[in-house]
Each structure stands twice: as C-alpha cells, then as structure tokens.
Amino acid sequence: MFKGTVKKLLDEALNQREDLFIIDFDVLADNTIKVVIDGDKGVLVEDCMFVSRAIEHNLDREEQDFSLEVLSAGATAPLTKYRQYKKNLGRTLSVKTIENETIEGTLTQANEEKILLEWKAREPKPVGKGKVTVKKQAEISYDAISKAQVVIKF
C-alpha cells in the first residue's frame, strides 16, 4: 500500500519532468524509500531535490514514518535502460555479453532492441607483412548484455 502511494507520487513528479526517468525504485521493510534517477541531459542536485520534495511533501509523517533517498545514477553506474544508451551515443562503452565476451567501442546507434558499437583494430595484412587498421562493429541486443558501462577517459 505505502509503496504504491510512493510510486504514484514518483510517477506524477516524472510526468512533470519528462527529461527525467527512473533507474531504480524500492521501499524497504523499514520504510526507507530509495529512488535512483537519470536524465536525458544528466541530473543536477536540483532534479533530485524536485523528486524528493514531490514525494516527501505529499506523505504524512504522522501516518507513516519513512526516510527518503533520491540519487542520480553515477558516471560509472551500469547502463540498464534504453534511454541511458540513447543519451550516451558517441561515447565509449565497455559491454560484457552473456557469453562473457567484453567489447569496447563507440556507441553509434541505440534503438529499443539493440545497440551498435564501432571501433578500430589492427590486424595482419591479407597479403604481405605488417598490419592494417580496420573498422569493426558489433550489433548487440539488450538480451545479450550482462553489463554495460561508459568508459571514463582522462
């Protein structure tokens, strides 16, 4: 019952701010509310405050004691939603597949079923000595991804 009320308040807040979306939401046994959000253009502290106030100001502490945490998905948090992939187009991802293969490349496409990674590799020339740079790509369905993260480069 309490979780349903909180979820309704969260959905109402996110309907006002369509640039924000839920990554994770849970209400623990001790009434700790945990909300992790992300945004199409990132998340500011003000965005977390907006979601927090939308929930907190519409619950009665006399009726239900609770604690509330609203946080943004961190830069190194795994990607779990299509919108996260879409907002990271052009960035380098490290993707581990369910076959335990790790692929690192630039995310060039993301639709609702799959992603496309592209990268360059050095391979032996077909004829003669030496190596040649070739462009590679991998189309990976979301079902085949066990973990995907943005690679932070300095």
Rank of each mutant, 00 (worst) to 15 (best):
E101D: 15
R122S: 14
L68D: 04
L107Q: 04
Q84P: 00
D30K: 09
T76P: 00
K41C: 05
E63L: 13
N111W: 03
V43A: 04
I55K: 07
K81W: 01
I37W: 01
I115R: 02
K114L: 11
N88T: 10
D30P: 01
N58W: 05
K34Y: 08
H57K: 14
D40P: 04
E101C: 07
K87M: 11
A29W: 07
L79D: 00
L107I: 07
K87T: 10
W119M: 07
V45K: 11
R122I: 04
K86D: 09
N100T: 10
A75T: 10
L117G: 02
T80M: 11
I103D: 04
E101W: 06
A121C: 03
K86G: 00
D47A: 07
I115L: 09
D60H: 01
M49V: 15
F66N: 00
L93P: 02
R61N: 09
G74H: 08
N100C: 06
S67D: 12
I98A: 12
V35K: 03
F50N: 01
D60R: 02
L107F: 07
K120N: 13
A110V: 06
L107K: 03
T106N: 12
E63V: 13
R61T: 12
F66H: 01
I37L: 04
A121R: 11
S67R: 10
E56A: 15
Q109F: 11
A121E: 15
D38Y: 02
T97G: 07
L89E: 02
K120R: 14
K34L: 14
P126V: 11
D40L: 14
T76R: 09
G74T: 06
K81F: 07
C48G: 06
D30C: 03
S72A: 11
A73H: 03
I115C: 04
D40Y: 11
E113V: 12
T32H: 15
L28H: 10
D40I: 11
P78I: 10
A77F: 09
I98W: 07
T106P: 00
I37C: 02
